[in-house]
Design a protein around this nucleic acid. Structure first.
Length: 758
RNA sequence: GGGCGAUUAGCUCAGCUGGCUAGAGCAUCUCGUUUACACCGAGAGGGUCGUAGGUUCGAAUCCUACAUCGCCCACCA
């Protein structure tokens, strides 16, 4: 018997130790693998690259992140062990609005107000906050065994990356793909920023449906209406009475016999006391409400379109903070929309213009981050015309240059590309990358000139009361031009996805970068399916645009990790599972195995502790079987065994080789569940249950050092080593631990991570 | 309203291009203190593969309806 080896595998202490060995080996770098292959005279195959999804540096990693890392790492280790210089490129995301929201909350808990703190100080502290989180995240990544190249780790706000992001912006602007436009946008009154359509969610909420009479201007019409409808005007139904202050028209369907005769007539908008016309539009639903729609182009996307079609005036009555503004009766100025709605309803009711109020439930848009109701308002923002980019991305999918697993998600992606809308990329935030633009004179002047095409710049002062002070031109650049004149900086930030959309090539140094030349395009993008449109779609569009090549050939979307009862994990429900706790309890390998068998693309995976426990048992089985084999080898036999020439035609050896080939195939085809099942089945039920028992019997009566023993033990050892290799991508810690035990006895060399499977 | 997907043992799922007497893990039950491992071993029970049709020599696997569930997208006042 050799030295004492503990009966149970102590994952807690071993894992840390093993990770250090990997880290110090240099094998996490593709150069390390290249070097190793060269030394051993082996063929260096094509590089394998995964640019890892950078987690948001605003919180600890959750169990879903760990899932991604497990798959990425398994893919990487498999490639590394089959001759490919492998780069798993890690990073951290500044995550724009998300981090700004969460850090603002952190400050609030400390009683600090972001607005009092000011932009610069906020940025500084937010940076420190992010760095702290990034460092935690890095530790967690290592805990699951992620063999990433941390010498290349990047943060999305790294100046090197920012430069690349800016260059893309300049190029797109010059080619007319990026432009400034005045449109109706999603404004979050709480975050005080514009949001892209995709950054909003829909939720059913309770609301009101108010029926309001807009009396006709002409006596004659009033009479006619009274006869027909019993009131002296046309009745509109609305969920948002406060927007009536910004109404420009009432629209009816031209086919609607009730209102036909009134088209072209005028009504007096109550309270605001403005005359507005009745217009006809075939898009109006006769069945809905009263069939007459109050049109508020400034505060409803539908109305905005109708307004554009009919050349209606846009009247802003709600500002960026969700408060009443503009040319409205003074008593409403500054009110919250809800407050204003109530006040209006009261006044209308007193005037006898309110028919009724129904309580209803309806879908509204809310901010994805803070769940505040979105306020549609008109504003000037920066847009990307993504249409031509989406067309190219579609082509790439059609040609099979990029494949999405599972295939259903590929269809969803195609659908997204087919129905894509202009992408609003400007955000009124403090945290992120500033849009690198300067305005001669002022931003206001620039927008005014754009909106008032043909007008003389002299009119600017007349209309706005401000001096022009410049030409309104745009200058592109991080710093202001050094010439005379006044340049106003664009203060808006980029949507975080504008920079992360460039992640696959920006992290590789961009076009011309050494790493870019070697590692772009990458092979796999492994991520969660909930950011398919936000991120994967953007990376494809921007990657194809900038580099002419799709950034990755396979998109692998792992399953959704759920709470034990099958519900979504969420902070508010408190049903989250802490990955660190799971790892401490059962070990990283056990958790990884669970992902591989349960969190496949297209599936939902409720976290079941018993299953992870079962995997821990398997890991321990590996440990004990190895321990048994080692304990059976007498010290005096070590040399004989390591020099023994094995007969490769033995049936157990051949079966093991076939098994290895089978598992390699599974790995190649991303069938991790089948792979995990196969290694378990083979190791446990073939090697342990049958072969070890057989060999036990075969050598029972043999003397130590005998030919028979050396042969059998060599065979067993060879089978063990083969198993360790093929199991390594799945369960790297336990396999490397055993390998290192073998190294100590001079029964193996080097580091398992760098071993080649053949 | 549009798109996508699911429906197989108590639970979570495998079952690819039709040939299974339908599998795994976990759970359940019985037996076992054999010096690798009780984080173990030997064994058992448990499913008319959502429903109804169709194609076929043959269907969990292909087709068509229906039912139920889930996810995503969408400006219905």
């Amino acid at each position: 018997m050799k030295k004492e080896i503990p009966k149970a595998f102590d994952s807690n202490s071993k894992e840390k130790e093993i990770y250090k060995i990997w880290e110090n080996s240099g094998l996490c770098r593709p150069e390390g693998i290249e070097e190793l292959l060269k030394q051993n005279g082996l063929k260096i195959k094509s590089p394998f690259t995964i640019v890892l999804p950078p987690p948001n540096a605003n919180a600890n990693l959750h169990i879903g992140h760990m899932c991604g890392y497990s798959f990425q790492d398994a893919m990487g280790r498999y490639q590394r062990m089959t001759g490919h210089p492998t780069l798993l490129l890690p990073g951290k995301d500044h995550a724009g609005i998300q981090t700004e929201t969460s850090f603002t909350k952190v400050l609030k808990e400390k009683g600090i107000d972001k607005w009092e703190m000011g932009k610069e100080e906020f940025y500084k502290q937010c940076y420190a906050f992010s760095m702290g989180n990034a460092s935690n995240a890095r530790e967690q990544e290592k805990n699951i065994g992620l063999s990433a190249d941390y010498t290349r780790e990047l943060f999305t706000l790294d100046p090197k990356l920012t430069k690349i992001v800016y260059d893309t912006f300049y190029k797109m602007y010059k080619e007319g793909l990026i432009y400034r436009d005045k449109r109706i946008i999603n404004q979050c009154p709480n975050c005080k920023t514009a949001l892209a359509d995709i950054d909003t969610e829909h939720e059913e909420r309770r609301g009101i449906f108010a029926y309001i009479v807009y009396p006709f201007v002409e006596e004659e019409d009033r009479k006619r209406a009274k006869e027909k409808f019993g009131v002296e005007g046309i009745t509109v139904a609305t969920t948002r009475p406060e927007t009536m202050l910004g109404d420009s028209a009432v629209a009816v369907n031209p086919q609607d016999t009730r209102y036909k005769e009134f088209v072209g007539k005028k009504v007096l908008l109550p309270i605001a006391n403005r005359e507005i016309p009745i217009i006809a539009d075939s898009d109006i639903d006769i069945e809905l409400g009263t069939g007459a729609l109050k049109v508020t182009p400034a505060h409803s996307p539908v109305d905005f379109e109708i307004g554009k079609k009919h050349g209606l005036e846009i009247i802003n009555v709600i500002n960026e903070e969700g408060k009443m503004t503009g040319s409205i009766p003074e008593r409403f100025l500054g009110m919250e929309t809800v407050e204003c709605s109530k006040a209006l309803v009261k006044e209308l009711s007193e005037k006898g213009l309110l028919i009724k109020i129904e309580n209803i439930k309806h879908e509204i848009s809310i901010c994805e981050r803070c769940r505040t109701a979105i306020e549609p308002i008109i504003s000037n923002q920066w847009y990307v015309d993504v249409n031509p980019l989406a067309k190219k991305a579609l082509e790439v999918l059609k040609q099979g240059e990029t494949t999405v697993i599972p295939s259903g998600q590929q269809k969803a992606l195609e659908h997204f590309f087919n129905n894509i809308q202009p992408w609003c990329i400007s955000r009124q935030l403090w945290w992120g990358q500033r849009i690198p633009v300067w305005y001669s004179g002022s931003k206001k002047l620039h927008d005014w000139l754009r909106e008032n095409e043909g007008k003389d710049i002299a009119e600017f002062k007349k209309e706005t009361g401000e001096e022009a002070r410049g030409t309104g031109e745009i200058y592109l650049g991080e710093n202001a031009p050094d010439d005379f004149g006044i340049w106003e900086a664009e203060e808006d930030m980029f949507d975080t996805w504008f920079s992360s959309g460039q992640w696959p090539y920006s992290t590789l140094g961009g076009i011309g970068g050494e790493d870019y030349k070697k590692y772009y395009p990458t092979q796999v993008m492994e991520t969660a399916r909930d950011i398919l449109f936000w991120w994967v779609a953007r990376m494809m569009m921007m990657g194809i645009y900038t580099t002419g090549k799709t950034p990755f050939s396979t998109v692998f979307l792992h399953g959704l990790i759920l709470a034990a009862d099958g519900s979504k994990m969420s902070k508010s429900k408190g049903n989250g599972v802490e990955p660190t706790e799971v790892i401490n309890k059962y070990g990283a390998d056990a958790l990884r195995l669970w992902y591989f068998s349960d969190a496949l693309p297209g599936s939902n995976a409720p976290v079941r502790e018993e299953k992870i426990k079962g995997n821990r048992n398997f890991v321990n089985k590996i440990w004990n079987a190895s321990r048994f084999i080692l304990m059976n080898i007498d010290e005096s036999e070590l040399e004989k065994i390591s020099n023994h020439e094995l007969d490769m035609s033995l049936s157990r050896i051949k079966e093991t080789q076939e098994h290895t080939i089978k598992v390699l195939k599974y790995l190649e085809k991303f069938q991790f569940n089948l792979g995990a099942e196969a290694i378990r089945e083979f190791f446990w039920h073939q090697l342990c249950d049958i072969w070890i028992e057989e060999i036990k019997g075969e050598i029972k009566d043999e003397e130590i050092g005998s030919e028979e023993r050396v042969e059998k033990l060599s065979e067993l050892l060879w089978i063990l080593k083969s198993n360790l290799k093929i199991m390594h991508p799945f369960v790297p810690f336990i396999t490397e631990s055993v390998w290192q035990e073998l190294v100590n006895l001079e029964l193996a060399e080097g580091i398992l991570m760098g071993e080649q499977i053949s």
